[in-house]
Amino acid sequence: MRATIEAICAKGLPKRDIHNANRVNLLALLWASTMLLGTVIIGLEFPLRDVVFTAVLLLHITISIMMLLAFKRFITELDELEKKVQLDALAIAVGVAIIVFSSGSILANAALVPELKPWLLIIIIAVTYMVGIIKGRLAYR
């Protein structure tokens, strides 16, 4: 159990990597917040709603780009072992998302399940990526 907690908390990573990871995590939190805010705003009726929505959307896009660049920096500056852990986790996350959504699409077209929602794709990728990181850190450390 202790090893799992250490894998989650990124024990043993250099301070630079932890700093970069924290930057990515903060931007991901802001990204999710602007996504939620935009979704809430579009469902409301108030004066200047479209202006506020447009501002939130532009903020969301800006934060998305910042998050992408921070994540690229994070991956680029990692040591080789942690880079392998991260890239393996990304590969698994993308693969699982493709399998779930392609199979889900077939099942939805056959009217056997409801159509999968885009937010579910984000959750599947995020959870699978986190599990992949923990599994990789446990396997290689």
Score class of each variant (00 low, 15 high):
residue 2 R to K: 14
residue 3 A to W: 06
residue 3 A to R: 09
residue 3 A to P: 00
residue 5 I to A: 13
residue 8 I to W: 07
residue 12 G to K: 00
residue 12 G to D: 00
residue 15 K to F: 08
residue 15 K to Q: 10
residue 15 K to A: 11
residue 16 R to T: 11
residue 16 R to H: 12
residue 17 D to I: 10
residue 17 D to C: 09
residue 18 I to H: 00
residue 18 I to M: 04
residue 18 I to T: 00
residue 19 H to N: 13
residue 19 H to R: 15
residue 20 N to K: 08
residue 20 N to S: 14
residue 24 V to A: 10
residue 25 N to F: 11
residue 25 N to R: 05
residue 26 L to W: 10
residue 26 L to K: 05
residue 26 L to I: 12
residue 29 L to Q: 05
residue 29 L to V: 11
residue 32 A to C: 13
residue 33 S to N: 12
residue 34 T to G: 04
residue 34 T to V: 06
residue 35 M to A: 08
residue 40 V to A: 02
residue 42 I to Q: 07
residue 43 G to W: 03
residue 43 G to N: 14
residue 43 G to A: 11
residue 43 G to Q: 12
residue 44 L to K: 02
residue 45 E to R: 01
residue 46 F to H: 01
residue 46 F to T: 01
residue 46 F to N: 01
residue 46 F to I: 02
residue 47 P to L: 07
residue 48 L to S: 13
residue 49 R to A: 10
residue 49 R to K: 14
residue 50 D to Q: 07
residue 51 V to D: 13
residue 52 V to K: 01
residue 52 V to T: 09
residue 53 F to I: 08
residue 53 F to G: 04
residue 54 T to G: 12
residue 55 A to V: 04
residue 56 V to W: 05
residue 56 V to E: 04
residue 58 L to Q: 10
residue 59 L to F: 15
residue 61 I to C: 03
residue 64 S to N: 08
residue 66 M to T: 04
residue 67 M to D: 06
residue 68 L to P: 11
residue 69 L to Q: 12
residue 69 L to M: 13
residue 71 F to S: 10
residue 72 K to G: 13
residue 72 K to D: 11
residue 73 R to F: 06
residue 74 F to M: 15
residue 75 I to L: 09
residue 75 I to D: 06
residue 76 T to Q: 12
residue 76 T to R: 14
residue 77 E to I: 09
residue 79 D to Q: 02
residue 79 D to N: 09
residue 79 D to F: 04
residue 81 L to N: 01
residue 81 L to K: 06
residue 82 E to C: 08
residue 82 E to I: 04
residue 84 K to T: 14
residue 85 V to H: 10
residue 85 V to N: 03
residue 86 Q to R: 06
residue 86 Q to T: 13
residue 87 L to T: 09
residue 87 L to I: 09
residue 89 A to N: 03
residue 89 A to C: 08
residue 91 A to W: 13
residue 91 A to Q: 14
residue 92 I to M: 15
residue 92 I to W: 15
residue 92 I to D: 13
residue 93 A to W: 08
residue 93 A to Y: 02
residue 94 V to A: 13
residue 96 V to I: 15
residue 98 I to F: 11
residue 99 I to C: 06
residue 100 V to F: 06
residue 101 F to I: 01
residue 102 S to M: 14
residue 102 S to T: 14
residue 104 G to F: 01
residue 106 I to N: 02
residue 110 A to V: 02
residue 111 A to Y: 12
residue 113 V to L: 07
residue 113 V to F: 07
residue 113 V to H: 03
residue 114 P to E: 03
residue 115 E to F: 12
residue 119 W to E: 08
residue 120 L to N: 02
residue 120 L to G: 07
residue 124 I to C: 04
residue 125 I to V: 14
residue 125 I to M: 06
residue 126 A to W: 00
residue 127 V to N: 00
residue 130 M to E: 15
residue 130 M to H: 13
residue 130 M to P: 12
residue 131 V to F: 04
residue 132 G to W: 03
residue 132 G to E: 08
residue 132 G to A: 12
residue 134 I to P: 06
residue 135 K to Y: 10
residue 135 K to C: 07
residue 135 K to E: 04
residue 136 G to V: 00
residue 136 G to Q: 03
residue 138 L to I: 01
residue 140 Y to T: 05
